[in-house]
Design a protein around this nucleic acid. Structure first.
Length: 704
DNA sequence: TTGATCGATTTTTTT
DNA sequence: AATCGATCAA
């Protein structure tokens, strides 16, 4: 059943509609119901509907739900991520922007390789001006819809990156020569298509009678312009968003797109969804209380009919090891009572997952890391894909560079650089340059032998791929080039798992009819829909990848200054507000139980150091908190644990004070384990295992 | 050209 | 702690 506002949002058909949907208010249901309603009421046919999301997962889920209700007709709906839809459109009109329809979509790795090449040629000091800063800035330009020729000095001056505009321009022309586009280009070229060809634009304006956009607060300027153009004729655009959940400004997202929606589309109807169906009222209260600290937001009141539920648990640990270790213990105790798959550990940054992985392995708790190292991003998989790219398109220099000396063929950096500059001079691809060099004798000896074999291999694979299935092709590549052998020779557990991944990769290829099909798929779909999803495992992931998900029990961990909020966000303008929204998103993932944890010490860049509790913890509503501390240390939040701790001390002093501390292993609440090397009255000299020698009062250590 | 070694640098977040 | 890049000997 839909509530009154949801129903209205589904049925409203008189032009632009903005749905401000708070966390857990059922926006996905509204979106899918609306699409079904459009079709069932004959307002639009499936192929006249455009539904845009940010993640493949969201798009997939939406489509799946609609298919369940109206069957195969749903297949004609244009639904997908901004990038996949833009790619689909660009494939139909590539000539307008001067590329071919078999363009390659390159990922961040390739883009970075290209930028590095360019800044090397321009002799820019990479030490002071790293390539990735350039790449980042260029991506931001693209997010704003700014092409190199449209830049004016104020756009790039303040970035303190020499020759930024020039590099951007060269980067674009190189991509064009390679018949390649990056993620940002997909949208950017769409805009160019629409500008250069009003007919094409009009075709899509007419085609898409109804446009629906999910997560509208995460659109960047380029996507915004794209939507504006497509919707400007019929103005049947329905955007769903929540300014409190905007967490992608670092990728160019602009909250103001929500604010200006009303101005861009006259007579916009605004519907607010404020009834939360997900969380207990305690969790909701916690989230609302936190987000109120932000200034830049629309004030809104989420409410719910749910019970208070459990209190929010706030737990403090000695260090990140005991944090992960004891959380594993807590979960172990819960096992049997609740499903593990209904538990999530949410971290601020990817590297934090490691401690949990280790703790879960130690406690033999099943877990999965969502969004971590994605399948198609693994090195061995990218290598094979690079082979496929070269086979599909021998002019794909970026892919060729990746594999020309993999496995090792004796083609070193010097040779590659030489070949590249030769290629640049003659305006020909790397592949062609190599071939030419072999023929005209400029490549000689061992080098010639190796490169001839390589070129022949590629041509053979090309031939083979015309007659054979994709998985057979890959098997041949792995065997004939010695790539598989390379890993097998390594004989490490790591290499073994790479071999396994390659096997998995081969079996995943069965679904694809052609190489072109596969390459299209792989460039835009980042992860294989993993089959482990149904298994009962604890979920570990970053908060960003948890967006849109919900779990019975959620642990938000590492709530410390410098981690959450992240150290960078503390310095950035508006950084803290976004960080707080991130916290808000994290809190509202929880349906029933919420644990907030932090460690008092943590290893940062290999150094064990004190870690301050996050400022966000002081923004929590105290009355619904249940504050606990791990038994091992002093905790500033909880007088109860202090008392318990001092009990421990008195017990110790009775039993152990006479036995002497010298040369004994001790534990200190703040510094951890150490060995006593000297006693001066009440003071002890201790060499701590992690922090070195310190002077500490006798009363503050326990014998182990 | 390769592999070893040293030192610098790193940690947001992702389509 | 772990990775990346620069440097150098073989």
């Amino acid at each position: 059943m839909l509530n009154k506002e949801q129903q209205e949002a589904v049925e409203y058909l008189d032009g632009p509609l903005l749905i401000l949907a708070g966390a857990g208010t059922g926006k996905t249901r509204v979106l899918t119901s609306r699409i079904i309603h459009l079709i069932n009421s004959f307002e639009a046919e499936a192929h006249q509907i455009l539904a845009v999301t940010f993640t493949n997962k969201a798009a997939f889920e939406m489509k799946h739900r609609i298919e369940n209700q109206i069957g195969d007709g749903a297949k004609n709906i244009w639904s997908g991520t901004f990038h996949s839809i833009a790619s689909r459109i660009l494939k139909r009109h590539p000539e307008i922007v001067g590329i071919n329809s078999d363009f390659t979509i390159i990922d961040g790795d390739d883009a970075l390789r290209l930028i590095k090449q360019i800044i090397n040629e321009l002799e820019i000091d990479v030490k002071n001006y790293p390539a990735k800063n350039y790449l980042y800035q260029i991506q931001r330009f693209k997010d704003k819809g700014l092409k190199p020729e449209k830049l004016n000095s104020k756009d790039f001056h303040h970035h303190n990156l020499p020759k930024l505009a020039q590099i951007y321009q060269i980067y674009q022309s190189r991509l064009k020569n390679l018949n390649a586009v990056d993620f940002g280009d997909l949208l950017l070229y769409n805009l160019e298509v629409f500008e250069k060809s009003p007919d094409v634009l009009e075709y899509y304006q007419n085609k898409f009678q109804h446009i629906l956009v999910d997560e509208y607060q995460d659109t960047n300027n380029c996507q915004y312009q794209w939507l504006l153009k497509l919707a400007s004729k019929y103005k049947n655009i329905c955007a769903v968003g929540d300014d409190d959940q905007s967490i992608y400004s670092w990728r160019g997202a602009e909250i103001k797109n929500i604010l200006r929606f009303e101005k861009d589309f006259q007579n916009t109807k605004i519907i607010r969804l404020e009834q939360n169906y997900r969380c207990t009222s305690n969790i909701l209260k916690c989230a609302s209380h936190v987000i109120k600290n932000n200034n830049q937001r629309h004030d809104k009141t989420l409410w719910s009919e749910a019970n208070e539920g459990e209190k929010i648990k706030l737990i403090s640990f000695f260090d990140e090891r005991s944090e992960s270790q004891e959380i594993a213990q807590i979960i172990d105790d819960l096992q049997g009572k609740i499903k593990l798959s209904e538990i999530a550990i949410l971290v601020r940054a990817g590297y934090q997952t490691r401690a949990f992985e280790e703790a879960f392995i130690a406690n033999s708790l099943p877990y999965r890391i969502i969004g971590g190292l994605r399948f198609f991003e693994r090195r061995e998989i990218k290598d094979v894909i690079a082979y496929l790219r070269v086979i599909f398109n021998e002019s794909d220099d970026l892919a060729l560079q990746r594999i020309i000396n993999l496995p090792k063929r004796g083609i070193g950096n010097a040779t590659i650089t030489k070949l590249l500059s030769q290629g640049a001079n003659t305006n020909s691809s790397l592949f062609l340059t190599v071939k030419r060099g072999i023929n005209n004798g400029s490549i000689k000896g061992k080098m010639k032998e190796a490169l001839t074999k390589f070129i022949n291999d590629i041509e053979n694979f090309k031939e083979f791929s015309r007659q054979n299935k994709l998985d057979e092709l890959v098997k041949n590549i792995l065997n004939d080039t010695g790539y598989l052998q390379m890993w097998k020779n390594e004989n490490t557990p790591d290499a073994a798992s790479r071999v396994e991944n390659l096997k998995e990769f081969i079996s995943s290829l069965e679904d694809f009819a052609s190489l072109a099909d596969f390459l299209d798929h792989v460039s835009l779909v980042t992860n294989t829909e993993n089959e482990t999803l149904n298994k009962d495992m604890v979920n570990i992931m970053t908060i960003h990848s948890a967006k849109g998900l919900e779990f019975d029990t959620v642990f938000i961990v590492g709530l410390e200054e410098g981690i959450f909020p992240s150290s960078r966000s503390i310095e950035e303008r508006d950084g803290l507000e976004e960080e707080r929204r991130l916290f808000y998103v994290a809190i509202t993932r929880a349906k029933k139980n919420l644990y907030l944890t932090h460690a008092q010490n943590r290893v940062v860049f290999g150094n064990f150091q004190a870690s301050l509790a996050s400022r966000f913890l002081s923004e929590l509503p105290q009355d619904i908190l249940d504050v606990k501390s791990s038994d091992n240390f002093y905790n500033s939040y909880d007088s109860f644990s202090m008392k318990k701790k001092s009990d421990n001390f008195s017990y110790q002093s009775k039993e152990k004070s006479k036995s002497g501390f010298l040369n004994k292993r001790i534990f200190h609440q703040k510094f951890g384990y150490g060995k006593v090397v000297e006693i001066n009255g009440e003071k002890l000299e201790i060499i701590f295992e992690k922090t070195g020698q310190k002077t500490v009062m006798k009363n503050f250590v326990q014998l182990q």
